[in-house]
Design a protein around this nucleic acid. Sequence first.
RNA 1: GGCCCCGUCGUCUAGGCUGGUCCAGGACACCACGCUUUCAAUGUGGUAACACGGGUUCGAAUCCCGUCGGGGCUACCA
Length: 485
Amino acid sequence: MVAPVRVRFAPSPTGEPHVGSLRTALFNYLFARQHRGTFIVRIEDTDRSRLVPGSDQRMFDALAWIGITMDEGPPVGGPHRPYVQSERLVLYREHAATLVAAGHAYECYCTTERLARLRAQGSVATMYDRTCRDLTEEERSQRRASGAPTVIRLKVPESGTFAHRDLIRGEVSFAASTVDDTVLMKSDGFPTYHLAHVVDDHLMEISHVIRGEEWLPSLPKHLCLYQAFGWAPPQFAHLPLLLGKDRSKLSKRHGSFSVQRFQDEGYVPPAVANFLALLGWNPGDERELFTLDELIHAFSLERVQPSGAVFDETKLAWMNLQHLRRFSDDEYGAQVQMYLKRIPSGVGERPPPWFALLARAVRERVKRFADIPALIGFVEALPPYEPRLLVPKKHTAAQARDGLAVARQALQVLPEAHWNVDAIRQGLDQAGQQVGDRTSVLWTTRVAITGQAVSPPVYESTALLDRAEALQRLSVAEERLNALR
RNA sequence: GGCCCCGUCGUCUAGGCUGGUCCAGGACACCACGCUUUCAAUGUGGUAACACGGGUUCGAAUCCCGUCGGGGCUACCA
């Protein structure tokens, strides 16, 4: 019987949730669910200077948005509460004291100024010079009496090797001589990430630590801590980094990659989850469209790649369209309605059927909801256009005038109650037959209705307008055509 | 500088552990043509990669060594 799977996602509440964090959360979640394990969220807020109030809640919202549910964490509680590190300070102090008492850690009285100077001059080694490591008891009480700020440092063995079998990279090892005597407890009484993380993971019985590759260099420190405490370390899996176009770690330099931004641009949660999952993982066959549930079944840590992955938004957009297709017109319309309400779109109040119609008009020509407003701007106001635009290529103004006239007649006979796409399509198609030239009917109508050469389909575009408004625009167009010589 | 990780089409990747079926497969993007007298979507076709150099072997994208390249970390931040 193997130990139950317990994984955790441990974000720092330092700002807007980022897609990189979301991916780490997702991999942890998929792994937990697949193994019928437990997914825990823990807030790592040990750095008071970088704390941004409210960002923990933003992160919970981002997780919920993409469909990740947590089994233990600040909002839901759990057997190992509290799940916020700033509320667990006593625990860290006790454990740090234990380490000092056992000779695995020591107090350090060096000032930050001295340490900075040390780093500045030493171009070779940037590690702590261990000045306070072997002080006598007398020397220590002397320093303490002088009121010097104190930190606690890990006493790393001078020789030996820290090795571990990473689930994604295989054997990784570090010579103890290259491992720094890291600070465990800061002078403000808060633990550093290293101490808090190891203590919590052990206390919370974490079985697998799945985190970004940027943590790989601190693995030996953590292994050293487990050793010092006499605890068995969990398994580790270091995920490949998410990269920008220039192949460096995704950061602000590359623009915004906040979860918020993707919501604002109208990407849907299953598409984002699908895309993020495929960054560094693949199912081993040629499938690439997955729902969250399908991901849970297909996922495996063994199939996660070790090399970094460039975040290609073009592919995300394509994938978004694929997921958008799973909505019916009504569902799609409802989503768009909610979306347009969130952003300033210029689209006024409309009944749900109107949005279903809108869905029909735009759904195959839009990859993200953010592209919709530009496509349907003509609905609220007819854009100015050159009368010449009404004349199709290889046609004369007279032909256009005829086509338009027949089109208007065909639509005019439609009563208000029959003002719908099907009737409009029928009317215009018949008009086209009557004239014997579809182009002169359809093209002129398109321009008259939308004021543009490029627009959603004529029938839908026309139906999106009120009957009176549509007829009005056709009349206007006829006049412009008449004025054309 | 030091430590560590990584290296297949522009991008995401399959294949590598168990060498031959890979003159390297799929997807996004791109190009061409078809459909549609809009745009898009879609269909068909196409361009495009095993970083380099040595080994091992009858045979290497696959194993070994080296080089080069890229990235991460190097705080009383996570």
